[in-house]
């Protein structure tokens, strides 16, 4: 067995996102009617109800809105990573997404911490966007 954690359940709304991820592009939806940038992907805009949408690439930086440190593995695939950090990250572009904070001690994570994207290539089909502390201006 290779990858032991749950994989994305791709549907019509999320397929362009996961296709982007495979190319290490963090794609989010932009409403073509009102311009709202939105996450998670949805069929219509929550602000204006338009179904006209395009995908734009977010630059992959943001801040930690909140986080939780898991000390127990509720699925066996996470056992070796305990303790691990689940976070809500506010992208610089606006949308908030759930993700992991990696590459640092869980005790060092804090709300409003600046973070940047790091890609976890977990299979031939999937790369999963995660975040790490911002490594400096690039």
């Amino acid at each position: 067995m290779g990858y032991a954690k749950p994989l994305p359940q791709v549907n019509a709304d999320t397929r362009p996102f996961w296709q982007g991820c495979r190319q290490h592009l963090l794609k989010i939806q932009k409403c073509k009617n009102c311009g709202l940038l939105r996450w998670p992907p949805a069929f219509i805009c929550s602000a204006c109800l338009s179904s006209e949408v395009e995908w734009v690439v977010a630059k992959g930086r943001g801040r930690v809105y909140s986080f939780a440190v898991y000390h127990s593995a509720y699925q066996p695939g996470f056992q070796d990573e305990l303790p691990y950090v689940v976070a809500l990250v506010d992208l610089d572009e606006g949308p908030r997404m759930i993700t992991n904070i990696v590459g640092c001690d869980p005790g060092g994570v804090y709300c409003e911490m600046a973070v940047e994207i790091v890609w976890d290539d977990v299979s031939e089909a999937f790369s999963i966007p995660k975040f790490r502390p911002l490594q400096g201006e690039g």
Binding site: P40, Y74, G77, E81, C111
Partner: peptide
């Protein structure tokens, strides 16, 4: 995954994880 959608990818499960995020933000 049926219950939590793509949150399960990140090891985010159930109510405890969600309320922990809420409580952490409240601490801040």
């Amino acid at each position: 995954s049926d219950m939590t959608g793509d949150e399960a990818i990140y090891g985010h499960f159930g109510a405890a994880g969600g309320y922990a995020l809420a409580a952490q933000r409240a601490m801040h």
